[in-house]
């Protein structure tokens, strides 16, 4: 058995502690050790983006990150977006605008969308398309996903202005 490392980090706003083997990926820790199954494994090679989470404000493929590298950092998963009122505005927009079909890429898309929205306002549609280039979707043809993120960006920007 490999040696376990004790790590502490912030997960969805709450402090957590975990003992993880050095070779364990962040996604396996999230899903198998911490039982947060909202983050999806699509390829395990950083090619599909289904496992996207936000670490210290930056979107990462959690399949390419070691669990031990979460130590001391702030990790947000799809489960962390839920508000006291339920779904957050971007999640609601994905529902209302039909950006979901089978839904397997959806948590990763929403996390990537969140990272894009956090990064800056005033992004063009072309920049949004490029921003989700690393997230594969086989069902929707991406159009409703791009439009949804664009509309959410527009809402965020208008709020900032007002």
């Amino acid at each position: 058995m490999s040696v376990l490392h004790s790590i502490r980090f912030t997960l969805n706003g709450k402090p957590v502690r975990a003992s993880v083997p050095v070779h364990l990926s962040a996604i396996d820790m999230l899903r198998d050790v911490l039982h947060l199954t909202g983050t999806k494994l699509g390829c395990g090679e950083g090619e599909c983006g289904a496992c996207t989470v936000i670490v210290d404000g930056v979107s990462v493929n959690s399949c390419l990150m070691f669990a031990v590298d979460c130590d001391g950092r702030e990790v947000i998963t799809i489960e962390g977006l839920r508000t006291d009122e339920g779904l957050n505005p971007l999640q609601k927009a994905f529902v209302q605008q039909g950006a979901v079909q089978c839904g397997f890429c959806t948590p990763g898309m929403i996390m990537q969308g969140t990272a894009l929205l956090n990064r800056r306002s005033g992004m063009t549609v072309e920049e949004i398309r490029r921003g989700i280039e690393g997230n594969l979707c086989r069902c929707t043809g991406y159009r409703k996903i791009v439009d949804t993120i664009a509309s959410a960006l527009h809402e965020t920007s208008s709020e900032e202005i007002s």
Partner: peptide, 13 residues
């Protein structure tokens, strides 16, 4: 909107 979309966007599905 799809009935199954809320649990899919929340990660509950």
């Amino acid at each position: 909107p799809k009935l199954d979309a809320p649990p899919k966007v929340s990660g509950e599905a």
